[in-house]
Simulated scan of single mutants.
Amino acid sequence: MSAHETIDVSTQDGSYDVHVGAGILDGLGELVRGACAGRAARVISDSNVAPLYANDVALSLLDAGFESSIHIFEAGEASKSMETLSELLERLAEGGLDRDDVVVALGGGVTGDLAGLAAALYLRGIKLVQVPTSLLAMVDSSVGGKCAVDLAAGKNLAGAFWQPSLVVADVDCLDTIAPELFRDSCGEVIKHAVLADEALFAALERRTLTDAGLTGEELVDIVARNVRIKRDVVEADERELGLRQTLNLGHSIGHAIEAASGLSLGHGSSVAAGLCCIARASSRLGWCSDECCQRIVALVASHGLPTDTDVPHKELLSFMLRDKKRHGDGINLVIPREIADVELRRCQVGELEEIVRLGCGVS
C-alpha cells in the first residue's frame, strides 16, 4: 500500500472521514463497518464502473458483515434523471433497507449525485458512503453533501444536502479512466487552485496533471489538497448561504456552456471554459489583473481544456438566468481578483450581458 491520507470533515449535519490513498479499495468493507453499523449495504454503480469494481466492493462489504447487493444503471449524464432516481428508490424499498443500512455510491459524479439523493430521500435519509472513481468526483462532488438530478429546464435543479458517513478515494481507480475523462476532471482542480491555493496553481504551471509521469503518491497529495480546500469551505458554510458559493467559480458560465452543448461537453471542461471567460471579463472590467487572467487561461490551455466558447451570447444568458444559482433579478458571480483571492459579486441582468460580451467568444 502506498500513501494514505485521512481528512476529517465536520458539519452541523455530522462528521466524517475522507480517506485518500493508493490501493485502499481492498479495505473498503472495514472502513464502512467502522463508520456504519447497519445490516445491509446496497452498492449503486453505473454500467462502466460496475464491471471493474462492483463485485470486489460487494465482497469486501460481505466480509465486513454486511448483506451486500449491487444495482447498476446506464452510464452517462442522461441517467441523472427523476426516472433513474425513482427506479433506485424502488430498488432500495424492494431490498428492505432500513434507516441503519447504507448506500454505497461507487463511481463518478453522476453516480454520487444519484445515489446520494436516493439515500437522502429513502426513509427520509439513510447512511451514505461515497466511493469516487473519477478525479472529478474525488476532488469535488463526493465531498460536501450536495446531490441532485437534472430537470428538462437545467442541470442539478432537483436535489438536497445529504452528508456522507464516509468517503473513500482510491487513486488507483484513475488508472482505468480514459485520458479524455481524466483531462476533463482537471478543470475542477484548476478551479480549486484559483480559488484558494496559490502553491497548487504554481505546481500545476510547472507540471500539469496530465503528465503521464505522476506517481500514486503525487496523486494522493493533489487529491488530498483539493479535499482540504473543499472541506474548509463546506465546514464554514454547509448550506451554501455565503462562502460556499465561491466554489461556483467558473460555474455560472460553465453550466450554461454545458447545457448549451446538450451535456456533450464534460463538466470539468465546461467549468474550465467558464473560468477563463469570467477571468477575461474581470480583467477587462478592472476586477482582476491582466496577469491573473493570462495565467488562468494559459494553465487551462496547458491541460488541453477549452478556454472559450462559441455559444451565442443570448443562448448563454438564457441558460445562466435559469440556473439554480439565480437570486431574484440577478446572479451571485464569483470573480477572481488574483490567484487564491476571489470575491462574490452580485450582478444584475444588464451586468451579466456585459460580462458575457467581454468574456465569451472573444479569445
Rank of each mutant, 00 (worst) to 15 (best):
M1G: 13
M1A: 12
S2E: 14
A3V: 14
H4R: 11
S10C: 15
T11K: 09
Q12I: 10
G21V: 03
L28T: 09
V43A: 05
E74L: 03
S86N: 15
E94D: 13
G95H: 05
G96W: 05
D98L: 05
D101A: 00
V104R: 01
V110H: 00
G112E: 02
D113V: 03
L123M: 13
V131W: 14
A137H: 05
K146W: 15
K146A: 01
A152F: 08
A153H: 05
L157F: 07
W162T: 10
L166N: 07
D170C: 01
D172F: 08
P179W: 01
R183L: 14
A196Y: 06
G216N: 04
V220F: 09
A224E: 09
R225W: 11
R228A: 10
R231P: 13
V233E: 08
N248P: 15
E258Y: 06
A260T: 07
G268L: 02
I278S: 12
S282D: 13
R295G: 02
V300G: 01
L316T: 07
L316Y: 09
L321H: 10
H327P: 15
V334P: 11
R337T: 12
R337M: 14
C347G: 04
C347D: 12
E351D: 11
I355K: 03
V356E: 11
C360K: 11
